[in-house]
Write a protein that binds this DNA or RNA. Sequence first.
DNA 1: ATAGGGTTAG
Length: 581
Amino acid sequence: MALAYYYLDTLLQRCTSFSHIKQLHSHLLTSGQLHSSPTAAAKLLDLCAVSSAADISYATRLFRRLPSAPSTNAWNALVRGLAQSPDPTRAISWFRDLSRAPQKADALSCSFALKACARALASFEAREIHSQVVRLGFGADVLLKTTLLDVYAKVGDLDCARKVFDEMCRRDIAAWNALIAGLAQGSRPTEALDLFRRLREEEGLRPNEVTVLGALSACSQLGAFREGEKILEYIMDERLDLNVIVCNAVIDMYGKCGFSEKAFGVFRSMRCRKSLVTWNTMIMAFALHGEVNKALELFRQMREAGVEPDDVSYLGALCACNHAGLVDEGVRLFDSMAWCGLVPNVKHYGSVVDLLGRAGKVQEAYKMISSMPMVPDVVLWQSLLGACKTYGDVEMAEVASRKLMEMGSNSCGDFVLLSNVYAAHERWDDVGRVREAMKNRDVKKIPGFSYTEVDGVIHKFVNGDQSHAKWHEIYAKLDEIKFKLKAYGYVAKTNIVLHDIGEEDKENALCYHSEKLAVAFGLISTSEGTPIHVIKNLRICEDCHVVIKLISTIFSREIIVRDRARFHRFKGGLCSCKDYW
DNA sequence: ATAGGGTTAG
């Protein structure tokens, strides 16, 4: 007997395991419904392809044995299921088959196929489907356009995403959200925030949870805490703080802007249930600030709160140990991952190698790299090389450098480190050889920059920068600083500068590092006693670290510097990193 | 009978 549709729907809902699906399949087969009703067939396919009990290979077999030509719905079930499967590229080829089939692709087919492109990072295919969307006459579909925009952003083609956005004749909040989030995730946070401002000022649309997430992520990257706090005010006004993901983003924003205590305040007082990500974000925030004990305490507490740590939690805890030089604790944590059934990934290895290397255990770090079950990446060898520089290990430095060359790394920093190791041993011929190799290769130098915010305006500096409107005053301040430092017995640490320039030039090269310019600018343009926040894209250099410590005493200022890896909080001549970084 | 936007990571 054929099942009535409402009865079929009930059955479909109750299918929670694969054996249920098979039972239903055989029932539809014996009752003849699979043949007589395309709807029933499509529904069964959908169940096989996308439900919790899904089995995509069963779905494809079922599809191929369909008695009559599959309906568009049947195709869609497959494309959707494949788009969510481990190999989303298969969805794209099924979509191509659909385009050649007598049944036409509809807007949904396109949407699912585009999702697959996003997951597979297939930008060429996304373009292809885009043109098909237009040809099929779905060019004005707001939902499809939003998907399209989102896909372009996710495959890294932000300019295309922007173009789709600009061409939309009607934009609702989701379209804005897609672009704001896309820009934030694509490391273009300034544009994301511009768009967020425009949305509020021009369009009269109300930002929702998703909007503020994109904007907060942009603030985290920029270290823009004033903007971040304004967004937090809006969140509280609109009661968006009932959403745990929003709370996580706020915690992250405070953490990345240098306020671990404020982050913890949000963590403690949030009105919704904490998720795994909440704990991980807070642990990482403490780690970033070098507050090991707080990070490890939270790591312990999360279990008591019934939240099992995952690989990201462990990474946060390892990172905390790394920033504090807790070697034994770090190694112990790393080893204990297996007890929880967690498999360390390259980042866990990276963290431990760095931890061992910084502590001077260069051999052990090397052993760790050699014993890794996956291919060590550039970052790992760079950590080892950095350790070799600190501890003057020439042989190991050569090993690491050779690996880096083999891997095609031609970043300036790698050469400079090796050259410094040789220089420390006064092996000038080798130094010259490295310099020669740098000239012969097309060495990439990442320009260092720092910036600081004053009255809502971001002031950015590069090394030796003279483009700022107030550069004369800034350099005058640095001269004053230089003079005062002498009284404290300061001598420039010129050993970290390349060796083919004169001693005085070396001192000058150091003297005008971007972070010093930013700090000097902070000193002359903010009132006494207010903290100065600086963000830097690279790691802070030894000389700047010494100088800024002294500045914090001489001028009684708290100076907070976020470098590539962590925060340095300078106060009263000391730094929160305890000179270990 | 199925569509768009989302947090943590060396």
